[in-house]
Structures are given as structure tokens and as C-alpha cells.
């Protein structure tokens, strides 16, 4: 089928068009440059970086920096590579995202469809957690984790991230469900569905877009978190802390190629999540705001 060429308005000339595309290309280069530098240099031997041009493509292509970053680079005192920390991060992020999303959805459901006296205040208080700076809670959190016996463990980190995540996930789901017709819930009540069944059978099936938004948001934030990981990670530090230890080490030769590879490895999961679910992200962001 022939696609009609996009016509332009009477007063949009060729020059304007060229200008617009020029600007767009410029921005594209600007944004892709760092990625290019990282990828190009992570595939070079170290000598090529120290003795040559950062912007050039590798003369000798090698995957060795990647292998090193993954499994043998010196992280702190152990030559373990980023692998165990990557696993730590996964073990921390997946449950944190899942739990905080489920709790946020339940909160949103209760706050909009089972309104009770004081629900607005509770929502307001939950929102507060979106605005509390991380640094303020470090010491109280350390005390709590210590008392619970979770200090320096993955479950401890999960708890911290869930507590912090609930504020945002509640906000997302509450606003999404506020536009969800209450008559549906009432119809389901008359049909005999209980609290959880209404949630499971009626609300959740239409919560796709907002769930994607919530998962992307939580995943990115928790994966990228450094402060909590460094403070409460103990022996089970996440990827971000390990990357820092790799890059900031003050002894030995700075292996830039390994650092670049490590940095990409650390960013890869969030990148993947965006690529896979990104288009739902935009759709979901609009979904709650315009029309139910």
C-alpha cells in the first residue's frame, strides 16, 4: 500500500525543514557520544587508550576488558569481578520492585475504592516518603535494621527499598485507580466478589500501563541506588557500590577499558527495561492523567 507523503503547512519551507533535521541530528550525536565512547573504549586494549585517541575505533578489537570486568577485576580487596555484585543487585532489586509494586497497587485500591475516614491524610503521609531525602533516614534506618537483625544483608536492603518505594508506587496506583469507575467495584460487590477477588479479577487486569510505569520507575531507582547499598550492604553490596570500588581504586594502573565495560554492565539492566517497556511507559504516564 502506498504511503502518502507527509505534507507540510504552506509556510514551512525546505530551509526550515533542513534546520529542524540538523538540530535533531546534532542532539542525537550529543546523546549518543558517551555511549559510543564507552563501547569503543571497552573493546580496546589499555595501551590504545593511554597512548591514543579516546574517540577512535579500536585498532585491535578485544573482549578481554569485558571478561575482566565481569569475573576477575579487583573489587576492593578481592579479585572477583562485578559478577557476584551483579547477582546481589538482582537478588535485591527483583523482590524490592515486586513487593513495593504490589503494596502500592493494594494501597491505591484501598485509598480510592474503599475510602475510609482519614484516607486522605494517610495518602498525604505516604506521599511524604517521596520527598524525604535519603541521608536523613540513614541513622534511624541503621538502628531499625540492627534491631531486626537485618543489617548488612540483602533482606535488609529489600526492606529499605520497599519502604522507600511504597510512596511512589502508591501515588501511581492511587491516581490511576481514581479514574477507574467505582460502579465497576460496586457491580462486583453485588456479584459477590470479595476484597481481594475484586482486586485480582477486576482491577489488576486493567492495570497494565501503570504497572509498567511503576516497575520501570522502581527498577531504575533501586538498581541505581548507591547510598543505601553502600551504607547497609555490608558483605552483600550491590552493583553500584562495586562499580565505585572498581573505578575509584587508588592503587595500581587505572584500567579504563575495564572501567568502561563495568559501567556498561552496571547500566545494562535499566537500559534493557527501558527498551523493552519504554513505549508503555509513556502510554502509562498519560493514562492516569487524561482519561480513565
Amino acid at each position: 500500500m502506498a504511503v502518502a507523503e507527509q505534507d507540510t503547512a504552506v509556510r514551512t519551507g525546505g530551509i526550515t525543514r533542513a534546520f529542524i533535521y540538523g538540530i535533531l541530528l546534532l542532539f542525537m550525536f550529543f546523546y549518543l557520544m558517551p555511549l559510543f565512547v564507552m563501547i569503543a573504549n571497552s573493546l580496546k586494549p589499555l595501551a590504545e587508550i593511554t597512548g591514543g585517541n579516546m574517540m577512535a575505533l579500536p585498532d585491535t578489537w578485544t573482549a578481554e576488558p569485558w571478561r575482566q570486568a565481569w569475573s576477575s577485576a579487583q573489587i576492593g580487596v578481592e579479585p572477583t569481578g562485578l559478577k557476584p555484585y551483579f547477582i546481589n543487585s538482582i537478588l535485591m532489586v527483583v523482590p524490592s520492585v515486586a513487593i513495593s509494586t504490589v503494596l502500592g497497587a493494594l494501597n491505591g485500591y484501598v485509598l480510592t475504592k474503599w475510602s475510609f475516614r482519614g484516607d486522605k491524610i494517610i495518602f498525604g503521609l505516604l506521599l511524604f516518603s517521596c520527598f524525604i531525602p535519603f541521608q536523613i533516614v540513614l541513622i534511624p534506618m541503621a538502628t531499625v535494621l540492627g534491631k531486626l537483625g537485618l543489617a548488612g544483608s540483602i533482606p535488609g536492603l529489600i526492606l529499605v527499598h520497599v519502604v522507600y518505594g511504597i510512596g511512589f508506587s502508591t501515588l501511581y496506583y492511587r491516581n490511576y485507580y481514581a479514574a477507574f469507575p467505582t460502579e465497576l467495584v460496586r457491580a462486583a460487590m453485588i456479584d459477590g466478589a470479595g476484597f481481594f477477588r475484586i482486586f485480582w479479577r477486576i482491577m489488576l487486569p486493567v492495570s497494565g500501563p501503570i504497572t509498567v510505569v511503576c516497575v520501570i520507575w522502581q527498577f531504575t531507582n533501586i538498581w541505581n541506588d548507591f547510598l543505601f547499598g553502600a551504607s547497609f550492604g555490608g558483605q552483600t553490596q550491590p552493583m553500584t557500590v562495586a562499580l565505585n570500588n572498581l573505578v575509584q581504586s587508588s592503587t595500581g594502573v587505572k584500567e579504563y577499558n575495564v572501567h568502561f565495560a563495568g559501567a556498561i554492565l552496571a547500566a545494562l539492566p535499566t537500559l534493557l527495561v527501558y527498551i523493552v517497556a519504554g513505549r508503555y511507559f509513556v502510554r502509562g504516564l498519560m493514562a492516569g492523567s487524561v482519561k480513565g
Binding site: P181, E183, R186, G192
Partner: peptide, 20 residues
């Protein structure tokens, strides 16, 4: 008594059909 135990049925203004 809970709505589901009253043996009633209701037709809503917006129809309230479950979209999924």
C-alpha cells in the same frame, strides 16, 4: 447484609461491564 447476600441485581448508569 452484604449486597451479594441480598439476592438483588443492579443495572448501573454506566453499565459497569468488566472491561477485561
Amino acid at each position: 447484609v452484604h449486597p451479594s447476600k441480598r439476592n438483588i441485581a443492579m443495572v448501573f448508569q454506566s453499565y459497569a461491564l468488566y472491561p477485561n
